[in-house]
Amino acid sequence: MKIIVCLGNVPDTTTKVKFVEDNTKFDAAGVQWVINPWDELALTRAMELKEDSGNSVDKVSVITVGGKNTEPTIRKALAIGADDAVRIDLNPEDSYVAAYQMAAYLKNEQELHIVFAGTESSDYNGAATGGMLAELLSVPSISSVSGFELEGDKVRISRDIDGGTEHLLVDIPMLAIVHKGIAKEPRIPAMRGIMMARKKPLNVVPPSDVEALTEIVGFELPGSKPPCKMIDVDNAKELIDLLQNEAKVL
């Protein structure tokens, strides 16, 4: 059985975000790119499942929609342990285009088992690609997944809800949209993995023809906020007074 992990390439989360061309483009100059944090957790969980001899996962593949600039991120995923990778050669304009490209590719798979997608990408925060992909592939999707166990040809899922967790049983094929909790810590590639990653297959495929449904036309940085009002430590109680009478939130 195979697990396919959707992989996003995003600016490092500490990036000081800037825009160029009259605030219409993200300034990628000097930016460090990383695997989207949730996709990294998804990949980690996929590797754990593959290594667990108690189930039949024997392959983990990653898939990305992106230009050549995403290859270091893909190699990192291979170094973490993915067996092979596909890059669909296009910079997607929106979540729909990304999902459409992956669906067009995955429809050619002989058999689809399990797909992992992260809950959102940390750059455009679309929270959409996984759900769109599932709809395009006509498979069930489960969101807010914080636990994933295999049990024969079924999947046992923990799904977070407001103020609790649901335990669900789902058939394969399925797509899991994962977030915090799915794996404890993202894996860091080991030296051996980095060496092996160079020889693993990274297939580049041409994109399909599709039009975006949305377009980002501009960016704004948040306005500056008034400075923090400091309260003397010897008069901490004043804080409660200010919250009650000035901010009016108590």
Binding site: T119, A128, G130, L136, L213
Partner: peptide, 24 residues
């Protein structure tokens, strides 16, 4: 709403109606 259920459903509805989605 941009909550667990909204994030789970809106992308699928967007595809099935071919309606562009803005989330959040």
């Amino acid at each position: 709403s941009h909550d667990n259920a909204g994030k789970a459903l809106a992308p699928r509805v967007s595809v099935s109606l071919k309606a562009g989605l803005v989330s959040g």
